[in-house]
Simulated assay, not measured.
Amino acid sequence: MPAGLRQVVPGIPGTPLPRGILGASCTNVIDVTEDEIHQLNGVEWLAVGCCPARDWPDPCEDPVPGAPTDKEFCRPTTEHATPITIYAGAECSAPGFSYEEAREQALASLALGEQHAIEAGFMRTKLTQDAVDITPPEGPLNIAQGIASLEGCLAENYGGVGTLHIPAGVAALLGCCNVLHEDPATGTLATWAGNCAVIGAGYSYLNQGPGGIPADAGAAWLYITGPLVIRRGPVDVIPDRSRASASVNIRNNDRRVLAERTVVVGTTCTICAVQVMACP
């Protein structure tokens, strides 16, 4: 076959990881309407279920040693979630790279990578800021012990189904100890206690613990939270079609187009973190 110029073909499409923060069926993703757009400035609410229900002994029976003598009352706490902006940009020399091509590139990159960006943003702005580190003084646990510790931590503070946040880099280890099982009807990954699991590339990318502390060599940070609600805004393309000429920098003749959206990720009650060994 004679040599010649390479044939230009469409790019290879990708598929977002199915267990990520947007793909996991335990995450409630809400695409906000125009009437709800103000929610993208952040939201707040009164926490529900963070004060556990307790048992009370029969007053007609003899007192049990250690039994409570007064009933406990909890004041509801106000929780909030702050906005995270995620984006993807396309850049190339303007000759031969039209505005529409740049726009398509930016939108495709955002669609494929938004889970990664949301996970990293949520880890950076919420998980690392509010989590309680339950790693023992002896150091990282194996992955089964780590998940068991996280589930115990959440159960002591919250009565509902929680969400595990697991870096993609240790996901393969979950099968070694039969830690998770899949619901064939929904595809949900859950522990035997019933907590749901999100397996995220963004968590692997940062791999940070409380206070932004990096994981030890050969280790990874895992988290558990209450349920997740993600509010997503519309995708904005900058500049839009009406200002397509503004995408070109006249100094170097490069074209830049940006696609971005705002998300607000909310969770509730206690957040626990533990460091685990990234080996079987």
Rank of each mutant, 00 (worst) to 15 (best):
P2Q: 10
G4I: 04
R6W: 03
R6A: 10
P10R: 15
P10K: 14
G11R: 14
T15Y: 11
P16R: 11
P18H: 09
G20A: 10
L22G: 04
C26A: 14
N28R: 15
V29P: 03
D31Y: 06
T33L: 11
D35W: 10
E36D: 13
G42H: 13
W45H: 11
L46Q: 14
A53K: 10
W56L: 08
P57K: 12
D62I: 12
D62R: 15
P63H: 12
P63Q: 14
P68N: 12
K71L: 11
F73E: 12
F73K: 11
C74Y: 06
T78A: 15
T78H: 12
E79Y: 13
A81E: 08
P83R: 14
P83Y: 10
I84D: 02
T85A: 10
T85H: 11
I86N: 03
A88T: 00
A90H: 05
E91K: 14
A94D: 08
P95N: 15
G96Y: 09
G96D: 13
F97A: 13
E104Q: 14
G113H: 00
G113S: 07
E114Q: 10
A117L: 06
I118M: 09
I118H: 01
E119K: 13
A120R: 08
A120K: 12
A120E: 08
G121C: 04
M123P: 02
T125R: 15
D130W: 09
A131D: 07
D133V: 09
P140A: 07
L141R: 01
N142F: 06
I143C: 00
G146E: 00
E151V: 14
C153K: 13
L154N: 11
A155M: 15
N157M: 08
Y158I: 07
G160T: 07
G160K: 05
G162C: 09
T163N: 10
H165Y: 08
H165A: 07
P167Y: 04
G169Q: 07
A171W: 01
D183H: 04
T188S: 13
L189Q: 01
A193C: 08
N195P: 08
C196A: 12
C196L: 02
A197R: 05
A197Y: 01
V198T: 06
V198G: 06
I199P: 00
I199R: 04
G202L: 00
Y203R: 02
S204W: 00
Y205E: 14
Y205P: 00
L206W: 00
N207T: 06
Q208S: 03
G209Q: 05
P210M: 08
G211S: 11
G212E: 06
I213G: 12
I213E: 15
P214Y: 04
A217S: 11
G218D: 09
A219V: 01
W221F: 03
L222I: 07
I224G: 07
G226K: 01
P227V: 05
P227F: 03
P227E: 08
R232M: 12
I238V: 09
I238Y: 04
P239T: 04
R241D: 13
S242D: 09
R243Y: 08
N249C: 11
R251Q: 12
D254M: 13
L258Y: 02
L258S: 05
L258Q: 09
R261S: 07
R261Q: 14
V263R: 02
V265G: 03
G266A: 15
T268F: 03
T268H: 02
T268L: 02
T270D: 11
A273Y: 06
V276R: 05
C279G: 10
C279E: 12
